[in-house]
């Protein structure tokens, strides 16, 4: 896998690294995730059965309840949270507030090439402070 660097809009500051978990469907943090395990249980998500813990979670959008912040924070409390979030568009304020409260870096609106080049499992470094996503070579 070639190395790569993509620009994005930094929303929640901080740096984190993890294997990409890429979804093509919108995710509701309330209801689609089992808090304690970080496993996706929502039947409308194409990530059903996958675990978000420690991954760079890449979503086209979030959906659903304004309680999203609480579920993101609960993932943090249970240490089952994703390493970082990458979203196509700015989400509901509740999602952003949950990411800030949980210290999970978040970037949005990555450049178009990101969506073409990205593969599930790619090792990504996300910098929410400067707004950058980098792919590292697997060693």
């Amino acid at each position: 896998m070639p190395e790569g660097v993509w620009q994005a809009r930094g929303v929640v500051g901080g740096q984190a690294e993890g294997a990409a978990l890429v979804s093509r469907t919108a995710l509701s943090f309330l209801g689609d995730l089992d808090i304690c395990s970080g496993v996706v249980v929502g039947r409308s998500s194409d990530l059903l059965g996958a675990c978000v813990t420690g991954r760079v979670l890449v979503l086209p959008a979030s959906r659903g309840s304004a309680g999203a912040w609480r579920f993101l924070f609960q993932l943090k409390v249970h240490d089952s949270h994703p390493a970082a979030l990458v979203l196509k568009e700015l989400p509901d304020p509740s999602v952003t507030q949950g990411a800030i409260l949980s210290g999970v870096p978040m970037v949005v609106e990555p450049e178009a090439e990101f969506w073409e080049d990205l593969r599930d499992g790619d090792l990504l470094q996300v910098d929410g402070t400067i707004g950058r996503i980098a792919r590292r070579n697997a060693e």
């Binding site: 309840s65 609480r70 509740s94 507030q97 800030i100």
Partner: peptide, 24 residues
């Protein structure tokens, strides 16, 4: 407002201004 129902009532019936907030 943390409650989405309060947000929509405030914006739509009372004319106050609110987003769908969380803990903030």
């Amino acid at each position: 407002s943390i409650e989405s129902g309060v947000t929509v009532f405030a914006n739509s019936v009372l004319g106050a201004r609110s987003n769908r907030d969380g803990f903030f």
